[in-house]
Design a protein around this nucleic acid. Sequence first.
DNA 1: CGGAAGATTTCT
DNA 2: GAAATCTTCCGA
Length: 204
Amino acid sequence: MCMNMIKENNRKLEKEIYLGNAEDIAKFILGKILVHKSPEGITKGMIVETEAYLGEKDKGSHTYNNRRTKRTEIQYKEGGYAYVYFIYGMYYCFNIVTNKAEKAEAVLIRALEPVEGLELMKARRKNDNILKLANGPGKLCTAMGITREHNGMDLCSDILYLEYPENDVEHQIEASKRINIDYAEEAKDYLLRFTIKGNKYVSI
DNA sequence: CGGAAGATTTCT
DNA sequence: GAAATCTTCCGA
């Protein structure tokens, strides 16, 4: 019997994982690996920082009051899809759609610790500092090569998905206020940002 | 159809 | 502290 016959595929997070609520998933995926298989090569990064957006009742969310537009439509699907939007004329942000259909919740991935494909990530970012390759939502999309083409993509596909880490290191979760949503009134104080405590790759 | 604003990053 | 830069959305 070979002890190392675990296929790479077996590590992929199951669809059911994404059907829970955004806050639970934001915490759950800390320490998991984001994988993108692009024509240029494979890049992987461990998720170290996330933010939950709760839709209807969350003034920080694009889907506050169930606002339904061409851009936000994907969030109304059931969990397990990518929500990628363009921001400030220059950057993309990568989110994971969560919960059941018509529950427009999502988890923003804010920072990664680079794991594989570091040379490709450096080239895309035009920066050699590993600490700063993916320590912010716009930066990680550049490093991973995520663009509008990935909007609406199924995260159970073989192109873009999450997997369980090979060595599941224990970590503590720290909650804090979300970043750059000063307009969100009372919602800006919600503790919906989650980081791996002490990790050097978080954005701030 | 015009204009304002944005879940950011980078440089001064 | 402010610029870079453009899609999306809302009001007229």
